[in-house]
């Protein structure tokens, strides 16, 4: 792949559920090593956009490209086959809000399932890989524990290890801390932060503004099915211009934003005048 070509791109994506038009033509290219965060009110289409990137949702029109995988949607385009979808998803990791760990498998088995079943990796090699990844997310001692015995934060870290085990080109994070108790959020965000530092290409949907400001190469603001803003942390979170974006950020924090530093975690209590 040439350096200029994005790792992942969506072009003029449209998605509706019946009469409800959720994505109204969204285009976005993500370069290798970039971390793009999608913010926006619930119902703005940000999760749907993310779920279109590994085709858990099939758009009605538009195009998706991830590495060598290319899909086009619309009139006259064939419905993608199960095997084509499976090939795409091997290379796109996804972490869900509700973890979706396999409850009948141990943490280690959750991580090795993909490599063994999908990548045809040998059992020995996959166990080595799995133990390494569990250690990376700080759960080396939980390899033989079933998900029911793990905390939410631990579950989510296993889920991240499971996705990483496929050695994906890009990782998608769908509100991965929204279902966690507040005190467990940071342990998950720290793992993601570490991945960002290693240069993993990532797209995140999140409500953690301070984290988004900290980790993102670019931030996208979804509003009413459109990618209304896309720019640097500075442009989108710290010095927003778009009135809808300002309204969203204000509603979000219940305190005025638009001033530098006002959304940084450490400054949230600081006087702004």
């Amino acid at each position: 792949m040439s350096a200029a070509e994005p790792t992942l791109s969506v072009t003029d994506l449209h998605k509706s559920y019946g009469a409800l038009h959720v994505l109204k033509g969204v285009s976005l290219g993500v370069a290798r090593g970039e971390v793009v965060t999608l913010i926006g009110a619930s119902g703005s289409g940000k999760s749907t956009l993310l779920r279109c990137m590994n085709l858990l949702e099939l758009p009605q029109a538009g195009a998706l490209q991830v590495g060598r995988h290319r899909f086009a949607f619309g009139k006259g385009e064939a419905h993608p086959r199960d095997d084509e979808l499976a090939l795409l998803r091997r290379d796109v990791g996804m972490v869900f809000q509700h973890f979706n760990l396999f409850p009948h498998m141990t943490a280690l088995q959750n991580v090795t399932e993909g490599p063994i079943q999908v990548r045809n990796m040998s059992k020995r090699e996959s166990i080595e890989l799995g133990r390494g990844l569990l250690a990376k997310v700080g759960l080396a001692d939980k390899a033989d524990t079933f998900p029911a015995k793990l905390s939410g934060g631990q579950k989510q870290r296993v889920a991240i290890a499971r996705a990483l085990a496929m050695k994906p080109d890009v990782m998608l994070f769908d509100e991965v801390t929204s279902a966690l108790d507040p005190e467990l959020v940071q342990e998950v965000l720290n793992v993601i932060r570490e991945l960002a530092a290693e240069g993993m290409t990532m797209i995140l949907v999140t409500h953690e503004m301070a984290f988004a400001a900290d980790v993102s190469s670019r931030v996208g603001f979804m509003n009413d099915g459109i990618l209304a803003e896309l720019g640097s942390v500075e442009e989108v979170i710290r010095k927003p211009q778009n009135p809808r974006l300002i309204a969203f950020l204000n509603r979000f924090h219940r305190q005025p934003v638009g001033m530098r530093g006002s959304v940084d975690a450490g400054h949230s209590g600081a006087a702004s005048d």
Binding site: N54, L56, D82, D83, L85, A86, L87, L88, R89, R90, D91, V92, G93, M94, F96, H98, N100, L101, F102, E113, G114, Q117, V118, R162, A163, A165, M166
Partner: peptide, 20 residues
């Protein structure tokens, strides 16, 4: 979500059904 998790790691339908 179990189906989705299986799909997300690139499993085919029949395999998700059997394994998950």
């Amino acid at each position: 979500g179990q189906w989705e998790a299986g799909r997300a790691i690139g499993m085919r339908r029949s395999k998700i059904f059997r394994r998950i």
